[in-house]
């Protein structure tokens, strides 16, 4: 019964990068302490959340507005993170535009040349099993990412699977 329990936490914060340090701390501790993901994934999701929020702050919500982050953890199953903006930002995009951008940058031949632009594909895309872009009825965007804990269809978050890399050598 407990296995089906879902924990949902929603945080609303002003459109200001100043608050992101606290959100990163929260993300790290929440994943470490309340999920079965190993520590490496706590750090990875710290980055994923930070990148999602930075995009929402920079493009989706105007200064003085807000963004909303929702963490949903289904025990022993998955972690989902949604970030919503209000669509009031001057650089706002529609879901289809962002999806197109994501797909283009995901092409192996795509060259990242500037300072910006790596976060969505290289960090959020690489460290998620699913990513979804939606237009909100109220205006703005919702970007949802999901990471499964065990699902064999996806890259596992479990410790025994060394799918990623050499951290120290």
């Amino acid at each position: 019964m407990e296995d089906n329990t879902k924990t949902k936490i929603t945080i609303t914060l002003p459109t200001n990068a100043y608050f992101m340090s606290g959100i990163r701390d929260f993300t790290l501790n929440m994943i470490k302490n309340t999920t079965n993901f190993e520590e490496k994934w706590a750090f990875r999701f710290q980055s994923v959340v930070d990148e999602l929020c930075n995009n929402a702050i920079e493009y989706g919500s105007s200064p003085g507005s807000e963004i909303r982050i929702t963490f949903m953890y289904a025990k022993d199953d998955y972690l989902e993170i949604d970030v919503e903006d209000t669509g009031t930002g001057k650089n706002r995009m529609k879901a289809a535009e962002l999806q197109k951008l994501f797909d283009e940058r995901r092409e192996p031949a795509y060259q990242f040349t500037g300072i910006r632009g790596r976060g969505l594909v290289k960090i959020i895309g690489e460290w998620s099993d699913e990513i979804k872009f939606e237009d909100r009825a109220e205006g703005g965007l919702r970007v949802s990412v999901k990471k499964f804990l065990k699902d064999p269809r996806f890259k596992s978050g479990l410790p025994q699977k060394a799918e990623t890399i050499v951290l120290n050598s």
Partner: peptide, 12 residues
Amino acid sequence: KPNILDILQVVG
């Protein structure tokens, strides 16, 4: 640190 190396690695 490992988390920094991890992110540097994922972006290549």
